[in-house]
Structure formats: C-alpha cells, structure tokens
Nucleic acid binder design. Structure first.
Length: 216
DNA sequence: CAGATCACCTGCTTGC
DNA sequence: TGCAAGCAGGTGATCT
C-alpha cells in the first residue's frame, strides 16, 4: 500500500492511498507522530518502510475513517476558509439562522474553524458572538471574511495555537497562543480598549469576548 | 428540518 | 493535603 498524497481537509488529515482514502481527525488531544514508542494512549500505528506513524489520543475524540473515496463525513464539509471567495462566503452565510459564533463553528458552513479561531475572529471583526446571523448586514460578512483570511495566515505562520497538547509531527508546539486577543484571557484587560475580557458558555463552548469592542 | 443540547473520554486545575 | 467538581483546540446523536 502506497500513500500517493497527504492533504489537509478542514480538521481532517487525508491520505490518498492506492486503494481508497484514509482520513484522520485529531479531536481535542490527538497527535500524529513519527517513530515514537507505543504508550497507553497509542490508538493506531502505521508501519512504512523505514519509519512508523503513530496516532496518540488521550481523550479518544479523534477518529480514523476509510472509504473507497473521500469518507462521507469528510465530503460533507463546507468550503475551506483559506480558499473561499468573498462572494461565496457572504452567500453561504445568509442561509443560516443562528448565533454567529455557532455558524463559524459549523463545519458544514466552513471546514476548519475551531473554538479558538472563532473567538479570535469575532474579536477582530468586533462582532458579539451572540449576534444573530440573520441580523448581520453584508458589510459585516465582508469584514468577517477579510479578517478570517488575515487571522488564519498569521496563525499558520506562527505554527498554530498550543494550549496544552497540540504539536506538529516534529513534536513542536505552535506559538500563536501568545498572540491571542481574547481566547483564555478572561479577567484580563482587552489589548485594544482595556475593558476586562469576559467568558461565557455558548452552545456548550467557552466563549471569550470584549464586551466593549464587541457590543451586541 | 434547522438549531439547540447531550454524550462521549481522560487528565488537569480549582475550590472547599 | 485530599477530593470532588468543573473544564478542555470537537462533533455525531438525539432532542425540540
């Protein structure tokens, strides 16, 4: 069995094989690591000529899918945030009726945004996370689209956000957590206006925002 | 049917 | 110090 290509597809890592497509989701605590000894959290090991690839996952929220073609849960995901045009973004956004934060986390809307980047994006766009999507004018979607591109580019440049577990395949942490404006900064002053950052639970997710910069 | 809530799992932090 | 409760980069199943 050969791996023809490895690509990212939303939060999935997709392996195109001789036969079929393998998709790995890391969940909250999953890691794909080369050449490490097995431990109690090792969930899978792929042996190649001269090296191995292990999936470690403490909380077991990760998963491995295989199908003759792109597995259905993967194929059902929305467009990639890095690729979507402004027109397409604005067009898709208006077909949902929910809190804007919930929309950003909906992988059928866009594939790949998670809790950290939803919060950071809403802060940059100065949108309150509970604002209803149906109430947001086109200009706001354009702002979200533009800020999303900038935010993700900066986060990728910094190697992502390592809160506790995340590392790349070389075992290295990212540094974007140092640039977070609101995520995990509740009780601290807003870097833009000094107001105390708040945290509340929204749709079961910790949601961080500046009550002044992001008025309802 | 879309949107909201629950459930899954383990480890670490927090508060009494 | 000890222990239980609460919380964590996510999402499929199950409700309303």
């Amino acid at each position: 069995m050969r791996v023809a290509e490895v690509r990212r597809y939303g939060k999935y890592i997709v392996f195109d094989l001789d036969r079929g497509v393998l998709a790995v989701h890391l969940g909250m605590t999953g890691k794909l690591l080369f050449d490490v000894p097995a431990n109690p959290y090792t969930r899978a090991v792929w042996e190649f000529d001269g090296f191995s690839l292990s999936l470690e996952d403490i909380r077991q929220f990760g998963r491995v899918l295989w199908s003759e073609s792109l597995p259905e849960p993967v194929a059902a995901l929305g467009p990639d945030p890095l690729e979507i045009s402004r027109i397409a973004f604005n067009g898709r956004a208006t077909s949902y009726r929910t809190a804007v934060k919930g929309l950003l986390l909906n992988q059928r809307f866009l594939r790949g945004l998670g809790n950290i980047y939803a919060d950071e994006l809403l802060f940059r766009a100065r949108i309150h996370p509970e604002r209803r999507t149906e109430d947001l004018p086109g200009s706001v979607w354009t702002t979200l689209w533009r800020e999303m591109k900038v935010l993700l580019a900066e986060a990728i440049e910094a190697g992502g956000s390592s809160i506790s577990d995340y590392v790349n395949t070389a075992g290295e942490k990212g540094s974007f957590q140092l640039q977070h404006q609101v995520y995990a900064r509740e009780g601290k002053p807003c870097r833009r206006c000094g107001t105390v950052i708040e945290k509340k639970t929204l749709q079961q997710r910790g949601t961080h925002f500046c009550p002044r910069c992001q008025e309802r």
